[in-house]
């Protein structure tokens, strides 16, 4: 188990460096000159050169990349002499737009994205999984048909479309919900809940649809398994057969998927945050992309990759405890 973990962590580090290299190449090497952007309209060639030197973008690509990578582990100094700017490890650089530290920007917006992700995850797990289980057990019933119809629409309708319609109906017309915003929980829990419920639901709808269909399919497969027949042949109650013998094999793959989806969401719910104007990592990313704020894009990409990779490892380790067949192989 320990060697397995060490191996996985080393591989993860390798993947992260690769992701960093690729993102760096795409955004820094292929994008317009950041110095021109920072310098603004009234700009002299001298000033541009000066900025280039401070940013280090006058260096060859690989040198830039390793400076960036070094900054993450050891911190770095921008420029030299009087105007030098210290950036402590883990240094992700500074936004071209606001000059704020990218790390600080992410840290500031993380709570919003986490709140959105956790709330949505609870909703979609509860609704998606139970709808799927009921559908599988009552396969072919009106419930099954209706649930699967809804799920199909949840998968095919674009998020932002539903978001805009809901916002119009619930907030503008009926006025039963406030405009989504990101208040703190402590001040007014009810208002906090009302503000987040729409983003949660919208985000959860798509995932719940997917999870319901997957759970249903898994469950139907499992119910056809020989061991379920054995369980019935023992005289176990149908509830016990379902709960003990059918549910667990059906849900184990869902755990894997959930780990990945949730980890991905921690990197920001891009569309949902943008549509509702919630100031999380996702909205920050879409802003950064539209304004070509390369350090921010870079930082967010790396962070999202880190979440997904760590999530992947956690899921795999969890899997070894969930599935005895994998357990013996790893141990």
């Amino acid at each position: 188990m320990i060697t397995y973990l060490v191996r996985r962590l080393l591989a993860a580090a390798g993947v992260l460096v690769l992701v960093a290299l690729l993102t760096y190449w795409i955004f820094f090497a292929l994008s317009p000159d950041p110095a021109v952007m920072i310098c603004g309209k009234t700009c002299t060639p001298d000033r541009i050169d000066q900025i280039r030197a401070t940013l280090g973008v006058d260096q060859p690509f690989m040198t830039q990349f390793f400076t960036f990578l070094g900054g993450i582990f050891m911190g770095r100094t921008y420029g030299s002499g009087e105007g030098a700017i210290e950036c402590a490890a883990p240094c992700l650089g500074f936004s071209f737009q606001t000059n704020q530290s990218v790390l600080d920007m992410i840290a500031e917006r993380m709570p919003v994205s986490i709140t959105i992700a956790v709330g949505a995850a609870i909703l979609w797990l509860l609704i998606g999984v139970s709808a799927g289980v009921i559908s599988a057990v009552k396969q072919g019933s009106w419930w099954d048909k209706a649930a699967m119809m809804v799920a199909l629409s949840g998968i095919s309708l674009p998020n932002y479309f539903i978001a805009l319609v809901l916002q119009y109906v619930l907030v503008v017309e009926l006025q039963i919900l406030p405009f989504p915003s990101t208040p703190a929980f402590g001040e007014d829990p009810l208002f906090w809940f009302q503000s987040y419920i729409m983003p949660w639901s919208i985000l959860a709808f798509g995932y719940a649809s997917l999870y319901a269909r997957l759970t249903r399919a898994n469950m139907i497969d499992t119910l056809g398994e020989n061991f379920v027949r054995t369980a019935r042949a023992k005289g176990l109650s149908s509830m016990l057969v379902l709960r003990r013998h059918a549910l667990r094999p059906s849900l184990t793959p869902i755990v894997t998927m959930f780990g990945m989806d949730f980890a991905g969401l921690l990197g920001g719910a891009l569309i949902t945050e943008t549509v509702f104007g919630l100031n999380g990592v996702g909205k920050m990313t879409s802003d950064a992309i539209s304004k070509n704020d390369q350090p921010v894009i870079m930082g967010v990409t790396l962070m999202a990759a880190l979440f997904v990779i760590v999530g992947n490892i956690i899921v795999d380790v969890l899997y070894t405890t969930l599935d005895p067949r994998v357990r013996t192989k790893v141990a």
């Binding site: 020989n226 061991f227 027949r229 667990r248 184990t252 599935d323």
Partner: peptide, 12 residues
């Protein structure tokens, strides 16, 4: 049953 492997639940 015929196939003892698939007739036993792998999770327990």
């Amino acid at each position: 049953f015929q196939d003892p492997l698939s007739s036993l639940n792998p999770y327990y």
